[in-house]
Design a protein around this nucleic acid. Structure first.
Lengths: 199, 199
DNA sequence: TCGAGCATGTAATTCGTTACATGATTGA
DNA sequence: TCAATCATGTAACGAATTACATGCTCGA
C-alpha cells in the first residue's frame, strides 16, 4: 500500500474540482486569472497533475457531449477524492505550516468552508492564530538579537517578514469575528442560506 | 554557450557566501536557524547546489586547515560569482516578482545593500512600490467583482492576501525613509562607516 | 567506549518548467 | 481562408525531497 503522497497542486485541483466540475483548461484559467495566481497554470503541470489524480482514483474525467466546441474532459471528485480532500483539510495546523509563508495553510483554509463547514474554520483560525503568535515572538527575538549587526537591507527584509506575520495575526481576528457574525445570521434566518453553495 | 540558469537557492548561497565564506554545514544552519527559514536546509539541496555553483565557477571551495575538527570545505565567491550576483541583484523588478509572494524580490533586496550599495536599494524600493500598488489595485478589483459569490473562507483568504500586499506597500515607505536617514547620517559622519562591512 | 554533534555526501523518486506539437472551432 | 482561441497533450531537463550512509572528534 503506497503512501500516495499528493503534492499541493493536487489538492488545489481537487478543491477547485469539488467546487465545480472543470476541465483542465478551466483550471488553467483559474490559476492564470484569479487571485490563485501563485500555482503553476502551465499545461505541463496541470494535465499530468490531473492524470495522476485520476490514476489514484481521486477524480474522474468524462468527455462532455456538447454540440460544437472541441471535446473537453470534465473532471469531478470521486467519493475517494472527497475523502482525501477532507482528510487534508482536517489535518491540524502545525508550526511548519506557518513557516514557509503559510501558502499551504491558506489554501486549505480557502476550501475549508465548503467541505468542512464553518465550525472547522473557526477551530482552524484559533489554532493558526496561536502558532502565528508564537512564531512572531521568535522573529522579534531574532531581530532584537541580530538586528544591529545586519546590513540595513537585510534587517529591513526581516522587518518586512515580521510585518507579514503581524498582518496574518490581525487577519485571524477579523476572520474569526466574521465567522461569529455569519453564525449569528444563520441562526436568525433558520437555514435560509445553507452552508456550501456549490453554484 | 549554455544559459547557465541558476536557481533561487543558488543565489541565496552566493549571497551568504559573499557575506562570509562558509561551509555547507554553516549554510545549512543559517537556513535552519535564522529568519531565512524558508529555503531548504536539507543536505540533498545544499551540497549539490554548492557543487553546481563550483562547477560553474561562481564559488570556490578550499579545505580548511585547522587543527582538530573534521575537515570542512570553505566556499568563497569568485570574481565571476560576484559578477553574476551583481547582475542578478541589478535586474529590474518586474510584475512577475510581485506575484508569487515576492520571495525572490525580498531575497534580492536583503543582499542588495552589501553588493550594490544604498542607492540601488532606494531605486529598487521605488520600483517595487509601484508594482505593488498596481497589483494591489488588481486584487481589490477582483474582490469587488467576485467577493460576493465566493464562499466565506475563500473570500477571507483573498482578503488576507490583500492585507499582505498592503503590508508590503507600507513597508516600502518605511524602508525608503530609513535609507534617507542613513544617507543623511553618512553624509554627516564623512564615511566613518563605509558601505559594505564584510565582517 | 559510547553517544552526540560536526560535516559531507549519495540515490531514488517525484514534480514543475519550458518549449514544442496538434487539432478543432469560430468569426472576420 | 486565415487568425485567434479553445483544448489537450508530450518530451527533455533541472532541481528539491526523503532517506540513507559515512566518518571524525570531543566529552562523559
Amino acid at each position: 500500500m503506497k503512501a500516495t503522497t499528493i503534492p499541493l497542486l493536487g489538492y488545489a485541483l481537487m478543491g477547485l474540482v469539488h467546487h465545480k466540475p472543470s476541465s483542465g483548461y478551466d483550471l488553467r484559467k483559474v490559476f492564470a486569472e484569479t487571485a490563485m495566481g501563485n500555482y503553476s497554470s502551465s499545461p505541463g503541470a496541470i494535465y499530468p497533475g490531473l492524470e495522476r489524480l485520476e490514476a489514484g482514483g481521486f477524480i474522474r474525467g468524462t468527455v462532455e457531449e456538447t454540440g460544437g466546441m472541441r471535446r473537453r474532459r470534465l473532471y469531478s471528485l470521486t467519493p475517494r477524492g472527497r475523502n482525501e480532500l477532507k482528510k487534508w483539510l482536517a489535518r491540524p495546523v502545525e508550526r511548519n505550516d506557518v513557516l514557509r509563508d503559510a501558502g499551504d495553510a491558506m489554501l486549505r483554509f480557502s476550501f475549508m468552508d465548503q467541505v468542512l463547514g464553518p465550525k472547522a474554520c473557526v477551530e482552524f483560525l484559533q489554532d493558526f492564530r496561536k502558532l502565528i503568535a508564537a512564531y512572531l515572538g521568535e522573529l522579534e527575538a531574532f531581530l532584537r538579537k541580530n538586528g544591529a549587526d545586519m546590513p540595513l537591507s537585510a534587517r529591513l527584509a526581516v522587518e518586512c517578514g515580521i510585518g507579514g506575520y503581524r498582518n496574518l495575526y490581525e487577519w485571524t481576528a477579523r476572520a474569526l469575528s466574521e465567522y461569529q457574525n455569519a453564525q449569528a445570521t444563520r441562526r436568525n434566518s433558520k437555514h435560509k442560506t445553507p452552508a456550501g453553495g456549490v453554484r
